[in-house]
Design a protein around this nucleic acid. Sequence first.
DNA 1: CGAAGGCGAATGTTCTGACATTAAGTCTTT
DNA 2: AAAGACTTAATGTCAGAACATTCGCCTTCG
Lengths: 246, 246
Amino acid sequence: MANNLGLSIDRSSPVPLYHQVVQGIEAAIYSGVLEPGSRLDNEIDLAAQLNLSRPTMRKAMDELVRSGLLVRKRGVGTQVVSSQVRRPLELSSLYDDLTNNGKKPTTEVLSFSHIEADDAILATLQLPAGSKVYHFTRLRKVGGKPLALMENWVRDDITEMDQATLTAEGLYAILRRGGVNFRLANQRIGAMTANEYQASMLETGEGSALVTMERTATDDTGRRVETGHHVYRADSYSFEMTLVQR
Amino acid sequence: MANNLGLSIDRSSPVPLYHQVVQGIEAAIYSGVLEPGSRLDNEIDLAAQLNLSRPTMRKAMDELVRSGLLVRKRGVGTQVVSSQVRRPLELSSLYDDLTNNGKKPTTEVLSFSHIEADDAILATLQLPAGSKVYHFTRLRKVGGKPLALMENWVRDDITEMDQATLTAEGLYAILRRGGVNFRLANQRIGAMTANEYQASMLETGEGSALVTMERTATDDTGRRVETGHHVYRADSYSFEMTLVQR
DNA sequence: CGAAGGCGAATGTTCTGACATTAAGTCTTT
DNA sequence: AAAGACTTAATGTCAGAACATTCGCCTTCG
């Protein structure tokens, strides 16, 4: 069977060949050219069709398998994994999530300061004693409805920050522009009931359910960049993720 | 610098060479032989030290980078990522989590039936109309204290299930023994307040905070194996995870 | 007629070799 | 002394080849 998934390779492009293949096959799957459950040609044929070596083809398919789009079976072949597997689990901020979904979030900065960090924050961010950090709390609304109450601490040797920038942009966008390449995040998700302050800020009742999240993010040099404690209205937000067994 | 991480390779072993290297370096990191932040020898030297080719060495390091233990920088070298990065995000059940932490959970099966699935379950598990599934609810306790209330639906063409087995073992262990190789899980984590029934079962107050989780798991053949809706006492449980940017 | 063995096809593993790209330090030149 | 160019060292990419392992099907033998 000549799969003939209409993808072409540009050898003069700076983007690696295997990654071009990844993008091509991803596009073919999401656009429906490759149907869920269908079998692909074998690695050697595919490599030949695209004038690539088998290791290159294999590396591309490796990535697709790891991301859960393909399933390989020894002695059998490779299939497109059935069904609509949605967003893979990745580092993203609430702000990204919302804008990607076409919503228009607004941010209100409730407090902003540049202060000496206390011991707990120093330990979490692995900073030497006496270090200063940015500390701020924000309220995020979507369509005028409050959604999240967020408190964050950010090390101050990355980029200048001020209240105006935080109002206009998401935290992660600001940090990325400051040259941070995020690598890891450790997070913990739980639940609590709203206290009086939280209830009033989120315009919900005292005692209503909230989703809590604590997160600490690390960049590619191993620096702890940011830590925060967020609470979300449980009736408006939940965490969706896809776990991939490796 | 001769790193000399005391790992040896067994070429007669059936476990692939690159995986032996992965395990060896993992062990060196967790045991402290390789300290956080320390630099490794370059790929070519390491390969030579172990009498391996560079691609094999590279594949091993690839996996360690992906799992967040190492950080590579072009033109510079490879470092052990600083600090105590905990559990990587992986498919695991509450039962596994608890037993791995030395706790002794007990399970009480509240209801168990083998019934025709309703439309919602049929759609979620992608089963043809009229299919039967196992449906059960369980209460999990640790040290006599109730922790989770779980309701699950499992396709019935995998393995025989009964109330006794469920009482003695975790659901995932049973399914794995039935030949299921889990690949993906889609889950959603949120929060709610306890209703009267939940409060009484979990021995907490009505209106107290609960963590909710809905999960659907898929095996390596693309079959939807299981779906469930769980609630946890927020004061006793939260989800901890490490996200890795790829 | 059924079960065991054999065969082909696919993925899994490993090697050798080569060149490209990036980052950092060093050396030269102005 | 500072700015630029060069060198070096590391990771990043790609090719081609060989052999191993597993699965499913087909044939053959009891």
